[in-house]
Design a protein around this nucleic acid. Structure first.
Lengths: 207, 207
DNA sequence: GTTTAATTTAAACAAGTGTTTAAATTTGCT
DNA sequence: AGCAAATTTAAACACTTGTTTAAATTAAAC
């Protein structure tokens, strides 16, 4: 599904407001004003406010799909783990606020139907890391008894925690600007997650 | 601050609705109906809907404070880490839905003022783990170059990820009921986090 | 028992919500 | 150019929102 220019204007406006205020406290009039269009255009193009959210998910979620192309050529090793994690964090960090918004909205029971594309994304990304880890275990490169689902949860959770507690963590870590925070995520935090997972995969008495 | 019986009725009703629907999409009339009180009582006792949220934070957040009493008598060791993590997860898992709600609401920029008590909680809990880890590093029990803030983020994030993706993870892990999910968190997930942190603290080339 | 204060109620308030309508305008096509 | 379809508009719709009001009821104090 593709969107025309006016639809994209609306989606961009919605993105800005959704990610800072959440879905419920953003009105269609707010979105219309931000996008410089008439209120009725939102219903004209997306049917309803919920339809807009639906389209928003469709529109943005592909950005968070991990590209497995490059990884498929690599031999199974700790370096491959490093590379994969780097790709993961980069993909999610490129649209930080939006990822947080999607994760929050799809966690509310009321919006379970809308979270289906998000579920698809999670399955895809989980299978990417699972394949690599299971292959490494099979080849004896990584220690057994490692649960890929738990490792994946740990990685995603650590990243998400940085999204949801930005104000708190910026202060704790002495980071001045939002840009620096993004850089911190792509360097120090990425390295931390890499270290953690490698520590687990080489930890003998693991689990 | 303490609350009378009627106020507690309202808070319990709000808790139920907030945690499943979020703050914005829960109306004061919904809460009043659920609590079997007149709508005006909410404004009478809490001033406003925002005031209710404020009181809700005050009311529930103390439950998530880690009790450091027992830990203070323990010698610094990996066992102490295990014990601390167990206490952490137990405290948060005892009111899972509510912790998720608090974390989500205070992550929205609009509600930063209201999240101050939550910030206090995070500082308290972070300092608990920081103290133990730093002590261990100083004594040479744990490997240096470990950042307590990052380890704390990892632990909290992993737990939160389990709250926010319950539907997805229940399916992935083949867990049938909500109760079993809670049990999984207090056993397998707790053990995983313990293992991960111990792996990090004993990982030589760490960071 | 009377009076004062606290509680509870139903009704109304004004503002905001998502959505629809029907007319106006623009666009694309022959 | 003329016609039909698509787009855009302002206005209205019906409904919900949080909050307030003023009267009614209950509780507490003397």
């Amino acid at each position: 599904m593709s969107f025309n220019e006016k639809q994209t204007d609306i989606l961009l406006a919605a993105e800005k407001l959704f990610s800072t205020q959440g879905f419920d406290s953003t009105s269609v009039r707010d979105i219309a004003t931000e996008a410089n269009v008439n209120v009725a255009m939102i219903n004209y193009y997306f049917g309803s406010k919920d339809g807009l959210l639906d389209s928003f998910f469709e529109w943005r979620i592909p950005d968070f799909m991990i590209d497995t192309e490059e990884l498929s050529f690599m031999e199974c090793s700790l370096e491959k783990i490093d590379k994969m994690i780097e790709k993961y964090i980069k993909a999610m960090n490129s649209h930080r606020e939006i990822y947080r918004f999607i994760a929050i909205e799809s966690s509310l029971k009321r919006r379970m139907l809308l979270s289906e594309p998000f579920s698809k994304l999670k399955i895809h990304n989980l299978s990417t890391i699972s394949t690599i880890i299971n292959e490494g275990i099979a080849k004896g490169v990584f220690s057994a008894n490692n649960n890929p689902t738990l490792i994946h949860s740990m990685m995603m959770g650590t990243f998400m925690n940085f999204q949801m507690n930005q104000v708190f963590l910026q202060e704790q870590l002495g980071i001045e600007s939002d840009d620096d925070y993004g850089i911190y995520i792509e360097t120090t935090l990425t390295h931390f997650i890499q270290t953690t997972i490698k520590a687990l995969l080489t930890y003998e008495i693991s689990m």
